[in-house]
Write a protein that binds this DNA or RNA. Structure first.
Lengths: 211, 211, 211, 211
DNA sequence: CATGAATGAGAGTTCATTCAT
DNA sequence: GATGAATGAACTCTCATTCAT
């Protein structure tokens, strides 16, 4: 599956990976073009012809590298998720739980803003493509369980109240941040920069952390 | 708003409201069938033929009452929103802010569960239909401003901390509840009934209410 | 055939003629509306619904009086031809052949102008409806043979050169007048009132008449 | 003008000019088939499927080269007009005005007879397609102004009476010839070879030329 | 007679995918 | 590999005509 093989050379696409230098370049051009076109028109309104035209590649060449429109999208999304979860790799150790919540929220916000257009399309595809839903579910699960682990640690250290369910709380708060950003940055809900502060404050209060 | 233009009596282009009893029945059959088919297959995979077959009317009869697939959907969604927001009309006066938050969350949950399948489709359509996005935005705005007003009242009464932005907080918490239910009831995220309690607890804590 | 039964009460339409006073009025309303709508939108773009709406009559009532869209059109055209050929009945005796040519041309022009919109539609229908072509052919034949007879008389009286074929000449000159008016009044060819004088002059010269 | 936008090389919306030899052949097959089918069934009764079947190509291939039925028709008509006006390029210098009128009439007659079936369809389309009306108007204007210039020259040389309006006269006579041929060759008016001679004679007499 | 709903055979157009060169 | 033509199953919407009330 694409989520396991983000790097070129994997067998994500189902079509033979390019062996030559030239092939690799063409494939790359198609991927870049695909992302740009998807962002511009959405998945549904994107035609394979749009992608090849944008990539300045022959129509037929598309199918040399990708077995279908879904396949390119999956790979584009894969790269995006790599970018989105990169911040998680940053050492989460820091001065205080509250500070770390704030930092994580901001990092996610930055990543979201950077990829807002694709996030919109990802949301779109998630509504009808089961394979893709599964991919998202996995990504979410990883993030949620990481947060849950942190909460559990804080509870053990007496920094967070014990009556909170770590899994459920991280699921709910992730949903809050994620969807708030979606409504703001994708659906164009009236922008308001107080929102970010509010998300921090609510998260911290909800978890009973010392601000 | 859709409830004014989509309802019988409007003069949507090319389709008219039925003038006879019989026509009204056919229209109703189509609406019911439409909802059932949409729930079954999603908006994109629904064909007008599916709807008419399900309603046991001729293909062409569909266009006697609706100018397009989008139009029936809008009307189906309109009815759904009416049902979803009905609970808001319940008097919000109650024993305590925390109790009222719980009650509102539960009411929303019940409504969501009742309409989960359609909510999925509504999410789908929202990702590509601008007109429909606007309709949802308005519904959200109404709900959010109502919650904000409540928060403001509680702040004035000293029942909630003053440093919370009522608008932003209600936006964020609505997003939390809404999206958590979406991931659970629509996307099939591993079900867990602790989630509901967690949503209540987090909401109440986040708002600094006395549990 | 419609051309033989222009008056209500004939069996032109194939549907029973109206027996009651009320029926006659409805039928009349439909005929008037039909003409107006045909003139406005052309035959092809006219829908039966347009006609009934315009006549403020129920959709189904149309088929009480006319078996098809073609049938109303035929009857509308029939009335029009009656108006167009009325002027032929005016005694053609006059001071001189040239004067009579002029008078006939002007009379035709007046009639054409009066009915220009319908003439356009008639031309349209003639291009695909064989039955209708035949109707027009008959009308033309009558007019042409009448003119031919006049030319023959003038030849016998020494007022026109004998080397002209009366039938062919009247066919050709009728075509000239008819089509010139068509291009002018229907196709919107740059209007020019010198055209009428030219038609007279050319007709008279072509027939070798003393102006 | 159609000859600029309809011809290969234009970028008519949705359809492109073939880039390969093979594509050019397919396009040509479609054009030929289109003309044959149009002649056989008329514009209105022609289906795209008829054309593709006749050309032995897949249904969809039609839309590789033409954006619509109208578009092929425009291009077929364009080619026809090129053929119809070819004779105008023949040097008009000749023994006498009368002889040149005769020659022009005969050349037009030959062209008309060669293309009679398509002329019928062109007439049909002209009655409802505005774009196409404009195209015909332009072609007519060119032909008429050329004749008018000749008449003017003859008047200057004293070969034609000065009281004739050259523009109007050439419009009227063109209408006469055109429509007479139309009624004969298209509408199947009783054929008569005296008609051609009569058209010559009337034209010459009408213009006051020395036979 | 009047009314308006019901019918369903088309027709044009799209576009992912396959294939020939 | 690259190129672009070829394919044809869908799908939506129209509208003359028929029918039930």
């Amino acid at each position: 599956m694409a989520s396991e093989s983000g790097a070129p050379g994997g067998d994500a696409a189902g079509a033979g990976a390019p062996l030559t230098e030239r092939g690799a370049r063409t494939r790359e051009r198609l991927l870049t073009a695909a992302r740009e076109v998807f962002e511009e028109r959405g998945f549904l309104d994107t035609r394979v012809a749009h992608i090849t035209r944008h990539a300045k590649v022959a129509y037929g060449s598309f199918y040399t590298y990708f077995p279908s429109k879904e396949a390119v999208f999956l790979e584009v999304a894969d790269r995006l998720f790599a970018d989105m979860t990169q911040h998680d790799l940053v050492p989460l150790e820091g001065p205080s739980p509250a500070a770390r919540v704030r930092r994580a929220n901001r990092a996610y916000y930055e990543a979201y803003r950077r990829n807002a257009k694709m996030m919109a399309i990802i949301e779109q595809v998630s509504t009808f493509n089961v394979e893709f839903q599964e991919m998202r579910r996995k990504h979410r699960a990883v993030a949620v369980s990481r947060s849950a682990k942190a909460i559990r640690r804080w509870q053990a250290a007496g920094l967070a109240p014990a009556d909170i369910d770590p899994e459920m709380a991280s699921r709910a708060l992730a949903a809050m941040v994620d969807h708030s950003l979606y409504l703001w940055l994708v659906q164009g809900e009236e922008p308001d920069d107080r929102l970010l502060d509010t998300l921090d404050t609510l998260s911290i209060r909800a978890l009973g952390l010392d601000p």
